[in-house]
């Protein structure tokens, strides 16, 4: 393989990984935009979604080692996204909402607490437990395999079925999000409330509902990312959300926390930086590069690439 092909291959890997980070980063950025909270439990919501998908895909009557029925895969995504959305809303209503008027640090500590509860809760639940479980692999789905083979033959670059699925799901969900945020009444209210919550209330917007919807959407996106992540590995375990969660957090900060396009851009940059580091420098350095990026942005441009230099409103 020549250098260009190798580079192209790593870029493809990076974009595929980046699309997963972008999905997760969107949840951080949307929640931050509206309640000014870095939701440290967001990575664990991804884990919840991945397990929900796991249970759908390994339910009775299926081959637990592989997924060959595309309908089951669609069902897994839908159920996982719904379960995570429900978790997101329940956590918001029970843990964060009572603290809405409290100092931000209380909220942050609560989020860390929620994260610990979810991780260790998963460890003690008998169907989950502390040990990693094999996630079924994506195999023998003709359309996806066909696309993969065609690209390989045309360009010499190999895009795995999981990577193709990651692109498709990520792009689909981002388009849906774009539509919701820009063209629906709820989406407009989300933007209005994240700009000025008091003014939104004065216009008759029920901001409690809007906040719940925001948490639900962020959690659903994380669940989709969770399944994609699990398909790639392929395993699920209670701590699986921590690393992708942290990297997506860096992505959200890199793009400009609070900015939706920023989270997407940041996600792709993080994914590409990680795979290029792995491919051309050393796979041991990949995580160090991710957090090195965080330190560099915080020093150079804390508001991120697409972030606005808004002053903190009190």
């Amino acid at each position: 393989m020549n250098f260009m092909q190798e580079f192209g291959q790593q870029m493809v890997n990076g974009i595929a990984l980046g699309s997963v980070y972008a999905l997760i980063a969107l949840g951080y950025t949307m929640v931050y935009g509206i309640v000014k909270l870095i939701n440290f439990a967001h990575g664990d919501i991804l884990m919840v979604g991945a397990f929900a998908g796991f249970f759908v895909l390994t339910a009775n009557g299926q081959d637990p080692s592989k997924i060959s029925n595309p309908l089951m895969l669609v069902l897994a995504f839908i159920i996982a996204m719904a379960v995570s959305a429900l978790f997101g809303v329940i956590i918001e209503k029970t843990c964060y909402k009572p603290l809405r008027k409290a100092p931000k640090i209380n909220l942050l500590i609560t989020a860390i607490g929620v994260s610990i509860v979810l991780e260790n809760g998963a460890r003690v639940i008998p169907w989950i437990g502390p040990n990693p479980k094999q996630f079924p692999v994506l195999k023998d789905i003709p359309i996806i395999d066909g696309i993969s083979q065609m690209i390989k033959a045309q360009t010499g670059v190999f895009i795995s079925p999981v990577q193709i699925l990651s692109f498709i799901i990520a792009i689909l969900l981002m388009l849906m999000l774009f539509y919701i945020v820009n063209f629906t009444k709820t989406g407009k209210a989300m933007r209005a409330a994240s700009y000025d919550m008091g003014a939104a209330q004065l216009m008759g917007i029920n901001v409690d509902n809007i906040i719940s919807v925001t948490f639900a959407i962020g959690a659903a996106l994380a669940a989709a990312a969770g399944i994609l992540f699990a398909l790639n590995y392929p395993q699920v375990e209670p701590y699986m959300g921590i690393m992708p969660g942290l990297k997506a957090f860096v992505a959200a900060v890199l793009g400009g926390i609070g900015s939706i396009p920023g989270a997407m851009l940041g996600g792709f940059i993080m994914g590409i930086a990680e795979t290029l580091t792995k491919g051309f420098i050393s796979s041991k350095l990949a995580d160090a590069v991710a957090f090195g990026i965080l330190i560099i942005i915080l020093v150079i441009k804390p508001s991120g690439i697409l972030g606005k230099n808004t002053r903190e409103k009190v």
Binding site: K188, G198, M203
Partner: peptide, 15 residues
Amino acid sequence: RIFANLSVLENLEMG
């Protein structure tokens, strides 16, 4: 306290 990030029409819609 208009919603500076929204268009004029969107502000009216929020009203």
